[in-house]
Design a binder for these strands. Structure first.
Lengths: 201, 201
DNA sequence: GGATTATCTTTCCACTGTCTAGTTCATGTA
DNA sequence: TACATGAACTAGACAGTGGAAAGATAATCC
């Protein structure tokens, strides 16, 4: 039963890490804890992930990949012009569904952003918020305006997700009795459209 | 010279902690490192801050207090209707001026948000983004709309600050040659106004 | 089949947060 | 002034952590 070689230890360690993350939070997610959960010695993870930062970065990269798929799935049922909002809804839904993983992905100071897998997975996920072909039919401006649009969208969705995972939005809603959280979030997401285009005020 | 009682060790430890934070980053900011920097024994901080989380939370609370003052100072030279934008400019300027402290305040999983000082300091800073008297002259809606406005502003400014401290905005700007970073940021901040009011689309 | 290499274990070290017990000093009370 | 009380700080110890060897095992390639 106890084979010296695990065979797929890397995947097993990632699964173990995610289990710990959900069960005990990010502060309990250590190299040794992941090794214990996977039933291997405490130095085994180093061979696959190098560092603790390497393990966390790999898990975060996996999270970004899932986030991307989540947003794409949400956008699958929707007409082209509404895809941006669908992607934003997917982002927010993912944040609410996997708060601990989301915190790791966005708020952790332990990640190594020089890790190529993490950087590319994050860039891939964020690419959903860039102005894509067909989404901005008429007024496709200069690339500089497009950059500003992307930044604005990115900021807004990113910030909204932050508020959600910190529980501050729930706190605010509870202070305003009668407000439905889902309705409020839907309203907030819709405002994303207003950020587009360079201002003329 | 070596008096047994320091007299103002709490303040000295906070200053030491900030020094370490700027010099070596948040991962090097430990209880023992702060004690070393202040020249006291490694268990001295516990008496003033209880935990490591206590020390970091106290430092973060100090950061929120400074952030508030920063934003207020920016708004001091500006007419009433533009105060919201001035506050936002202050936020962003603070984030760019003190990136490590900003990361600690917003991105650290090591803070204890049950700590009353931290919670109140953060709430105080964020109150600058709530619709205040005189700022929304005509269409002061229901309190529920006001909540949504606050959340929207908060999300946007919060998210923009995040992008900045992660260096992603700089990366984006560098990809678009000829773009001036300050100009881009100013444009992005101006878009904050468009988020107000419940959408009718 | 034999050498090579990737995978995993054992042992060890410096460092961390935190507990317990002591030491020094300031301050209030008679 | 004498003394008690308690706050501020030190010293030492402990378990847990990341990480660096160095060794053991198994799969793979020739």
């Amino acid at each position: 039963m106890a084979s010296y070689h695990h065979g797929s230890l890397r995947a097993a360690l990632l699964a173990a890490a995610e289990t710990i993350l959900q069960r005990e939070g990010i502060n309990a997610l250590t190299l040794r804890a992941a090794a214990r959960e996977a039933g291997v010695s405490h130095t085994a993870p180093a061979h696959h992930f190098n560092d603790l930062a390497g393990l966390l970065s790999a898990l975060a990269a996996l999270g970004f990949s899932r986030l991307h798929d989540f947003a794409r799935a949400e956008a699958g049922n929707v007409e082209i012009p509404d895809q941006l909002l669908a992607h934003a809804r997917g982002y927010i839904a993912f944040a609410r569904a996997h708060p601990e993983l989301f915190k790791l992905m966005f708020r952790s100071e332990r990640l190594d952003w020089d890790h190529p897998d993490l950087a590319s997975a994050a860039a891939h996920a964020y690419s959903l918020l860039t102005p894509a072909a067909g989404e901005r039919p008429a007024h496709i401006g200069h690339s500089q305006d497009a950059l500003a649009d992307t930044m604005a969208r990115w900021s807004y969705v990113h910030g909204l997700a932050m508020l959600l995972i910190d529980g501050r939005l729930s706190a605010g809603v509870s202070m305003s009795p009668g407000a439905d959280e889902d309705t409020l979030i839907a309203d907030l997401i819709k405002r994303l459209q207003r950020l587009d285009g360079r201002g003329h005020r």
